[in-house]
């Protein structure tokens, strides 16, 4: 990340029960759909939201919020409302493996 500009970023994690890739929403809740994720454009705010994710990871209760593993920030590119990932690795993480079509996402092998 360059120091003068920041974001856009989202908070991502894995779901404890399924391992699924999940994103933090504005509510705050978790979603598997990147389009529902809360997009952050400010560094201080990103820290606050990451902290929110981490707090949820360490909650000890039966509520759904505690089923979150290893939250971190993912950088995005947003061009005319089309969302893409800055790192290839993050795109692959979101869309699923490229050797089989598992039908998890609309994904064509690049």
């Amino acid at each position: 990340m360059k120091s003068d500009e920041f974001g856009p970023v989202v908070v991502s994690a894995n779901d404890l029960l399924t391992g699924n890739v999940i994103f933090l929403t504005e509510k705050p809740d978790w979603t598997t759909n990147i389009h529902e994720a809360y997009v952050i454009n400010d560094k201080a705010e990103s820290c606050r939201w990451l902290l929110e994710g981490e707090v949820q990871q360490s909650l000890f209760s039966d509520n759904l919020f505690s089923h979150v593993v290893d939250p971190y920030l993912v950088e995005l590119k947003i061009d005319k409302e089309v969302i893409s990932f800055c790192a290839f690795k993050e795109a692959l993480r979101y869309y699923g493996p490229s050797n089989y079509f598992h039908g998890k996402r609309d994904w064509e092998i690049v």
Binding site: L50, E54, D70, Y72
Partner: peptide
Amino acid sequence: MRENNCANSTTKN
């Protein structure tokens, strides 16, 4: 890999 630039973001008591 997942280094965050946020200081004091851990919540351990």
